[in-house]
Structures are given as structure tokens and as C-alpha cells.
Amino acid sequence: MSRSDCGAGIVLDSVGMTFGGDNPVTALRDIDLTIPTGQFLAVVGPSGCGKSTLLRLVSGLLEPTDGTISVHGKTPEEARRDVEFGFVFQDPVLFPWLRALGNVLLPGRILGSRSPTHGPHTEQLARRLLMDVGLDGFEEHYPAEMSGGMQSRVALARALIYRASTLLMDEPFGALDEFTRDRLNLQLLDVWEKARATVIFVTHSIQEAIFLADRVTVLSPRPGRIVRVARVPFPRPRPLDLRFEPEFGSLARELRALLETDTTMGAS
């Protein structure tokens, strides 16, 4: 069954996920998806379409009930053991007893010599990452002393510090106001271009998905199926004003229409 084009990127082959229990729920069905190395893929869909489940399957936190997943030729479990993933959660999930710098250094402390950035320069690297996400001067602040947006940036820096080949982001800026989110999106693209990681970015905002990604995957709700994978034609670097261009708007409308028709179909 499984294809052997495993060398590059992330390959999902008819992946399905059903959660057991008395009322089994099928979260995802027949997901076929290939993400070439270094590509930025956005996944959009309404809540409950299994977007977060998709990330947990790719990172080996969950095992699919159907199909296979390969990450650079390895199983997700193996790739996770090799620390190939950086995960940014819906909440920042910072440790309140560590300052910003300590939180960014946490992966290195846990990984030790398994981290590619292990060594005497780790702290310098952490400080530079905090600067890259616009937090210089806040290294010694505790999470409770920072705003939600700043906490999200610390979480991003923490996911980047060990140079994971794959970044999985689960609506990381979903709880933030529009202005903060815009700024963080720009910073994310900036650091992504430096890190050259493969990214799967889950969001419920079509605008955010198009602005960030090389390709946008639209998922239908319950069970989540791929409705469409759209290429985003805009060159990089992308200015924030891009979102007011007519082509941007028409692509957004097109994807929104897909989501809406599918929602009504799902309800009937």
C-alpha cells in the first residue's frame, strides 16, 4: 500500500483517524497529502474538522487508525524520537517558573547533546531568537509579566531553538488581536525563511493561511476530508498590504465558498 517516495518531505497516504469509545468519532478520513521539504503548508477548516488531530498524527503523538504517514522516510514515532518536530500549541504552554530565556533554553536542557544546537553558544542563540521575534529586553521576564502576544513569541522561539526540520503550528496566534497577529505573521515568515523548515500551520483564518503559506489545504468538517489544495501564487517576501490586492481577495473568496458549501453539505 505505502508508496516508496519516502526520501523527501512528509507523505500522508489515505490516513484516517477514528477515536474509539462508546460513540466513535471519525476525525479524519482519506487524507492524501505530500508536503515537500521546506514548504509552508496551511490547513484551514472550521472547528472540529480534525486540524489539530492532523498535527498530532504527523508528530506521532497519536497513531492513525488507517493509512500511513512518513516523515523524511521515517515513521512519525521515529521522527519524533529524532526530535524532528517543533510544535507550537494553541496556548503558549510556557513554564511559569522559567523566565523567557529559560523557556527558550528548555528544549536544549531536555535534549542535551541530542540537540543540534547543543554547546556553549546555546544561550547566545536563544538571545538572538528572542531578538528575532522582537523580544529583546524581555529575556529575564516571567511569562506572567508578559502579554499574550509576547508569550506566543517566546513559544515560537522555543520551537525554533533546536532547529527542528518540521514546524507544526496549531492555531498559535488564534487568541491574539489582529494587529499582534499581523506582526507575528511577519516575524514568523522572517524566521521561517532563515530556518528553512517544513511548516504545517493550522488556522481557522483563510486570510492568515493565504498570507503565510505556499499551499493551503481546505478541510471539511466531521469527518475532516481534504476538499481542495490550493497553490498560493504570490511571491515572497510578502507585504501585509498583499491582503488588499484583488487576486488575494478572489482566492480567499474561492476558499471561503468551498468551506461554506461543504458545511451545508455536512449538515444535510
Binding site: R56, S59, L61, R80, R81, V83, F85, G86, F87, F89, Q90, D91, V93, F95, W97, L106, P107, R109, I110, L111
Partner: peptide, 25 residues
């Protein structure tokens, strides 16, 4: 939190590491 636990799993942290760096604090 379950997300903090997932973070530790993504970093393939050992049990001892999870205890000292997350559970205990």
C-alpha cells in the same frame, strides 16, 4: 496540562526529565 505533556513528548523527554523539569515544579 496535556499540552505541556505533549511538549515533553515532542522533545522525547525521558521520565526523569519530565519529573524534574515539569511535574515537580
Amino acid at each position: 496540562s496535556s499540552q505541556a505533556m505533549e511538549l515533553m513528548r515532542v522533545l522525547s523527554a525521558r521520565k526523569a526529565s519530565i519529573f524534574w523539569r515539569l511535574r515537580l515544579p
